[in-house]
């Protein structure tokens, strides 16, 4: 897993609530047996019309906005557990998603793929979306060590929460498999003495 420490980037504002993983990557793209290429189809049915032409109204097709941070509305990533959604977002080039609320499974999947979910307050999110929408050059800085998200050049910032263990994993690029395998003896001992 790629390490994450700090990131400074412009951001893309996706001002929609309850973005579900079917929108992030529709089911018809889940037939692959590897993790490659999902970025090409991220938000497929919002980015393209059914005839394959680009939907110029969708934010990802607006050349004013760019960057490796996605700022999205409340309850991002709800619905299906498909990790393909995290692969698609990472594949497109995002390293951070900012929202006021994340669905559980998506959040875990993101963290397992080096994609940092930054949960901010509703008021901070509205402020961010407004500023980015009115000035696409607005830069954000995310400092994982300090658990802080700020607008570069302005005195606007907020702390965010992250599980201490997951933070260590992100900073060092570790994943859970390493940890679990190193605890095999303990797991075998548990199996031998299950109470149920």
């Amino acid at each position: 897993m790629e390490k994450f420490t700090t990131l400074k980037s412009t951001a893309i504002p996706l001002n929609i609530e309850n973005v579900d993983t079917d929108q992030i990557i529709p089911a018809r793209f889940l037939k692959a047996t590897d993790k490659k290429g999902f970025g090409d189809n991220v938000f497929r049915d919002w980015r393209y019309h059914k005839d394959g032409s680009e939907n110029s109204e969708f934010i990802l097709n607006n050349s004013k906005y760019s960057g490796s941070i996605l700022v999205a509305g409340d309850n991002f990533g709800c619905g299906s557990s498909r990790e393909h959604a995290a692969w698609a977002i990472v594949g497109y080039g995002f390293r951070v998603v900012v929202s006021s609320f994340f669905a559980d499974i998506f959040k875990g999947n993101a963290l397992n793929n080096g994609l940092l979910p930054v949960q901010v307050s509703e008021s901070f999110l509205i402020n961010l979306l407004n500023r980015i929408e009115s000035n696409p050059n607005t830069e954000l800085e995310i400092n994982l060590q300090n658990q802080r998200i700020s607008i570069v050049g302005l005195d606007i910032s907020e702390n965010f929460e992250i599980d201490a263990y997951k933070k260590t994993c992100m900073i060092n690029g570790y994943d859970d498999i390493d940890y679990l395998i190193n605890n095999k003896e303990q797991i075998e001992a548990f199996e031998a003495h299950k109470i149920y």
């Binding site: 557990s81 990790e83 995290a86 499974i105 875990g108 994943d175 679990l180 797991i187 199996e191």
Partner: peptide, 22 residues
């Protein structure tokens, strides 16, 4: 409960998951 594919790999490898109690 439902899990992502990274977690499927974790259960394959260890029959366990790392989780915070909901």
């Amino acid at each position: 409960f439902g899990i992502g594919t990274s977690q499927v790999a974790q259960v394959f490898a260890s029959q366990c998951l790392l989780l915070t109690k909901p």
